[in-house]
Design a protein around this nucleic acid. Sequence first.
DNA 1: GGGCGCTTTCAAAGCGTTTTGGGCAAGAAT
DNA 2: ATTCTTGCCCAAAACGCTTTGAAAGCGCCC
Lengths: 345, 345
Amino acid sequence: MSKGVNLKELSNRLQLSQTTVSRALNGYPEVSAETRRRVAEMAEKLGYAPNSQARRLATGRSMAIGHVIPRSIHEMMNPIFLEFIAGAGETYSKHGYDMIISVVEDDHEEDAYRQIASRKKADGVIIHGPAADESRHRLLREINLPFVVHGRIPGAENETSWVDMNNRRAFERATNLLLDLGHKRIALLNGLEHMDFARRRRVGFEDALAARGLAPDTGIMRSSDMTEPYGCDNAMEMLRSANPPTAFLVSSMISAIGVARAIGQCGLETGKDVSIITHDDALSFLPNSGEVPIFTCTRSSVRYAGQRAAELLLDHIADPEREPSSLHLDAELIVGQSTGPAPDR
Amino acid sequence: MSKGVNLKELSNRLQLSQTTVSRALNGYPEVSAETRRRVAEMAEKLGYAPNSQARRLATGRSMAIGHVIPRSIHEMMNPIFLEFIAGAGETYSKHGYDMIISVVEDDHEEDAYRQIASRKKADGVIIHGPAADESRHRLLREINLPFVVHGRIPGAENETSWVDMNNRRAFERATNLLLDLGHKRIALLNGLEHMDFARRRRVGFEDALAARGLAPDTGIMRSSDMTEPYGCDNAMEMLRSANPPTAFLVSSMISAIGVARAIGQCGLETGKDVSIITHDDALSFLPNSGEVPIFTCTRSSVRYAGQRAAELLLDHIADPEREPSSLHLDAELIVGQSTGPAPDR
DNA sequence: GGGCGCTTTCAAAGCGTTTTGGGCAAGAAT
DNA sequence: ATTCTTGCCCAAAACGCTTTGAAAGCGCCC
């Protein structure tokens, strides 16, 4: 309760050595029960808390996990990123780790990782938003910094630890649902396809079509930053075309909201004239629940992914010899109000 | 470029004392130009970077700023929070500071601050989302942890440093615009009114009405978490009532999108039959720009607020004697497509 | 040629922990 | 009666940096 007591003062007050006090507080066995009690009591009374810098220096572990986030990624993935962070943060604090976030200029990302390693700022990092031509994992391996990927690095699935949802499968199932409902012309509003997750989603979409002998029509397939206007503008354009799609498969709730707006502006009704399935990351400020969710969706909690990715990383730090391990999360396919049978024509 | 060189090795290699090497690298004057050059060269060659824990311990400054974010706040303010963080993060890295984020259970927030102070985890913190009955600033003062508030603490405006936008004024101006357009029945969809910012917005709204001799109708004023369904459900209910509003003043883009959806579902047209003005925090994934923005809005960049708040805090840490200083940002009032003259009736 | 000031360097003392390598009893085993 | 455990505790050495206080070298002045 009082201020600024350090280990030396505390042990003086107790007439004990720093060693014993330290051991008592850190739960080592070679301390008598009585002494441990006395120490705990006095520590509480004087409000002792170990200086974390000193402890980190002495133990050689920084007890922190780094997240480096280049401005551009953050612009793109903003809300998803935070939700992930929140999940990871819960795990960290549960295990006494700190989370340190570096916002860096895009071309300084590599520098940021090198600094984290050389200055010993963190014991590990999480790679966000792996691209199709990812290379960060090589750097991290080179500088010997443990990491876990949120998503997957194509070609390195077996040699890295990762947490990802089954993007391909989710979009395959979603497409199948639309096909089962009789939709023949399905538009795909995907995320940026230099990102690994977007590629996999597209493959799932195409696989489902191919399984029914349908060829994808690139005229109604788009790939971009997943903003609201992106959804609206592209849907609008397609709906006004000669041969409009009857269904949209959309990569994010935010864009899906844009699509719904476009449908409304065309005087059509979502779920009746035009169907939408979106991927729902279960963001807290965009709830899509209720008795019947507004959007039919593939849902996978990105916050949960954050928790688990953090756990994997912490495990890996605790035991560096362990083989890389991974978690493949399946998305739920949830039927809401935004889908219905394809209209007759 | 190589790994794990520390100061001792580096100075051995140079046949110099650690003192001199340290001084050379940290830019102290009492080092000859020639020596400084040699040191820099060798440091580069061996890839030396000072261990940050050791440095922090030696200097007594942790070179980090803490952001503690209780789960509940984060659920509410999710995207805004991240945008602020991103801004602050830019400032931190520019000044060599780390940003550490603690996600804590709601009832552990106070603990989190105490820990930051007693374990010396950060040199200062930022208070997010001040409430009407705020008390964190007292705790922080008691434990002597420098801080800056994002927003304002009612009653403590002069004794704390803060960065806030002029919420009252923004909503007053927005309301005036609607009144000027002939709207008489204006609904307010506000954020949670135990939050300071929401209160101020409501006051601005009421002031504008009062100035024209109008009394607010609490039947069309709501206060809640600013989600999309919140906007849609409440707008829907009001629009279907006997005496529906002709305009909505909304506290966030996300809810405004919900309102627009409700308007569409009622077969009405936004900007024609019903007007909307929303507050726009300039979130990157919800751009509201273009030639004519979709939404008429009061706009203020929360990312910019983050940058400036961080600067204020860093200044304050550098010179603890300095008087608290503050920044009052004015929101722009930007006319978009969602407003028009009140329909005749 | 001793004193003085200036520049440049160094050895050593922190910073606040953890950890290493004993030490000293008291009881157990030989 | 000696040697081994076992349980509990300690002094001192890390950890890798910054900073203090001193000193060496050198030119210059009186």
